[in-house]
Computed example of a mutant assay.
Amino acid sequence: MSTHPDLSTLYPPLGLVLRAGDLTLRPLSDADMPEYAALLRRPIFADPTGPEVFPWYRAEPDERELDALRFQWRLRSGIGPEEWTLVFGIWAGGRLIGSQDVSAVRFAERRTVSSGSWLTLDAHGNGYGTLMRQAMLTLAFDHLGARRAESCAVVGNAPSFGVSRACGYVENGTQVSALRGSREVEQRFLVTPETFRRPAVPVEVEGLTPALRAMLGA
């Protein structure tokens, strides 16, 4: 029997778990990567040629998988108080259906997070997009002490706009996308603890240890 500590003890982000209704959110681990890679081959957008399609999704499936895995490992290795991104896999009924991220720069000073998310097309229409965003915001506002949460979506992306508004975001100007390979105009959104529309179900947060708080500047 191994006497070594669990990896989540050595690397605290891997021990974080959020539960809300049917959904479980937890940072992607190496053991999840084959399932995550398979997910990237499935349809995410109703119109695969639309302006809202992520530039990385336009790549051929093999390239898309490899780039996504590299990206996940790079983000994981870069988590620290000055800058961090947590990428949560979204499980519904034990099945991986998408991703929700939350990130910050100098969080201890700015108390501001930003986020992005996606679901496979067959998971749309169940309220999961709103609930997973609400779970993330509950973590950010109630447990990390964020005072602002920002998001953006390509102008015309009605489903994303709908999720933002359902969570209490308000429009906050526009910008040209910073994503590599995109020049689309995006609508910015902002939500604060005072305007946040909370989910109808409780959000349970496990694994937010002192060591993880220190890593996040919280």
Score class of each variant (00 low, 15 high):
Val154Thr: 11
Phe107Asn: 07
Gln72Trp: 05
Asn126Thr: 07
Ala200Arg: 14
Gly168Ala: 09
Pro55Ile: 02
Ala218Lys: 01
Gly125Asn: 06
Thr209Tyr: 01
Glu171Asp: 10
Asn157Glu: 11
Gly116Asn: 07
Trp118Asp: 01
Val102Asp: 10
Pro81Leu: 04
Ala153Asp: 04
Arg70Tyr: 09
Phe107Ser: 07
Ala92Cys: 13
Glu63Arg: 09
Ala68Pro: 01
Glu35Gln: 12
Arg188Asn: 09
Gly78Thr: 08
Asp30Ala: 14
Asp30Trp: 05
Trp84Asn: 11
Asp30Asn: 13
Asn172Ile: 07
Phe189Ala: 08
Arg188Trp: 04
Pro199Arg: 08
Asp32Gln: 06
Arg41Glu: 10
Leu14Phe: 13
Ala37Met: 13
Glu60Ser: 12
Met215Thr: 04
Thr130Phe: 10
Thr192Leu: 03
Asp67Ile: 05
Asp142Gln: 09
Arg64Phe: 00
Gly129Pro: 05
Trp56Leu: 06
Leu39Pro: 10
Leu39Tyr: 11
Gly168Met: 07
Phe71Val: 01
Phe189Ile: 07
Arg95Val: 15
Arg106Ala: 15
Ala200Lys: 15
Ile44Ala: 04
Arg95Leu: 11
Asp62Thr: 10
Pro43Tyr: 04
Gly50Glu: 06
Val201Thr: 15
Thr24Gly: 00
Thr130Met: 11
Phe141Leu: 01
Ala123Gly: 00
Gly21Asp: 04
Ala135Glu: 02
Glu150Lys: 07
Trp56Met: 08
Pro81Thr: 05
Thr3Gln: 14
Ala38Val: 03
Ala31Thr: 13
Phe107Ala: 06
Glu184Thr: 13
Arg58Ser: 02
Arg147Gln: 09
Arg42Phe: 00
Thr195Ala: 14
Pro5Asp: 06
Gly127Gln: 05
Glu65Ser: 06
Val53Thr: 07
Ala38Lys: 07
Gly94Glu: 09
Met132Val: 11
Arg106Glu: 14
Gln100Lys: 11
Gly116Thr: 05
Ala140Leu: 01
Gly21Ile: 01
Val105Ile: 14
Glu171Pro: 08
Trp56His: 09
Ser115Cys: 14
Val203Gln: 11
Arg58Met: 02
Gly156Ile: 13
Pro12Gly: 08
Gln100His: 10
Phe88Asp: 04
Thr3Cys: 09
Phe54Pro: 00
Ser103His: 13
Tyr169Pro: 02
Thr24Tyr: 01
Ala31Gly: 12
Leu86Ser: 08
Pro202Asn: 02
Leu28Trp: 03
Ser115Glu: 06
Val17Cys: 06
Met132Gly: 04
Asn172Cys: 12
Val154Asp: 00
Gly89Trp: 03
Arg64Val: 01
Ser103Arg: 15
Asn172Gln: 12
Trp84Ile: 12
Gly125Glu: 08
Glu65Asp: 12
Leu212Asn: 02
Leu40Met: 13
Leu131Ala: 14
Asp22His: 14
Cys167Asn: 13
Glu65Cys: 07
Leu39Phe: 09
Val203Glu: 10
Gly21Arg: 02
Ser2Ile: 05
Val105Phe: 12
Pro12Ile: 09
Pro202Trp: 02
Val113Met: 04
Ser164Asp: 14
Ala200Met: 10
Gly156Val: 12
